[in-house]
Amino acid sequence: MKSYKVLFVGSPGSGKTTAIRTISDIDVVDTDAKVSDSTIKRKRTTTVGMDYGKLSLGEDSVLHLYGTPGQERFKFMWDLMVSDLANDASALILLIDNTRNYPFRDIEYYLSEFWDYIAKRHFIIAVTRSDLKNDPTEADYQNCLKEKGILAPIIFIDARKPMDVMDLIMSALSQEENINWAEISHRVAMTELKKRNLDPDSPQFEWLRKTRDVPKISIIEAAMQVRGIIGATHLNEKQVQTDTSRHDLECNELFRSLAKLAAAIENKAPQLDQIRNISLHAPYKESISVFLEPDQALGLLTNSSMTHTQIRRQAEDLLQWSDNVENT
């Protein structure tokens, strides 16, 4: 029996679990847990271990589908999968959620994290949720990859549609011969037809219900649900406060002042890279951090127990999901 493997990676909510579930012949082995951090804005559950599914490619060959957990705090699983479980995978499929505020930053991040792995395998970018936000376009993604000197197929998909995911798989295994894609596609399509059930409360729609959009909450509400964050303030591109967890927060003025300083430095030395973060620390003392984007900034007051890396991860994720950008 010949076996192939494909690894799905991507940010939380980009559709890794959904894509695997959509075409797997078996019930997907998932490790979803209730969301406990800023991801709460988009999903009710998140993968904490890994996803595993299987697709038969014929009588004597099978495709194993692996998905990493999206959140950076489960990075140890990425290492484990890359070095062990999916070390012999044929391809890496990077899922990019088009509704994130800065999707190109996700490409940059995953390229840097999986570079050694990608260099030896077929690499594909799958853009999801473009039905909810059509910008950036395919041309934008192509330009982004061109600037990085990378050649990779960019495929826009709906991770819930089996034939869309099949396109990805066919591209991932395009160099493999002796696979009857027509037959597999037909089987996947027929299975999908059989599965169709108009009753939205039927158990088979449970996974859809789990991953559907939940009512949106503001970046500040999402921030305050993260353990370790004591206060949060959102600023617009003019460093004006748009939302805060507490109007009497002592450091609100400091957040504004640090954001203004960043803008002043960028004006003074435009040749330097953009200022992404300014933070203040002291032993056993709450940390003050401002994370800056061209169109918004987030000030956070955090417990001394939170490391800088933990604060950064949460802030970057919150800024990626922020709805406040368009409001400002």
Partner: peptide, 10 residues
């Protein structure tokens, strides 16, 4: 007082 500050540029 705070005795440590960070500035991230790119």
């Amino acid at each position: 007082l705070y005795d440590e500050a960070h500035l991230q540029l790119g």
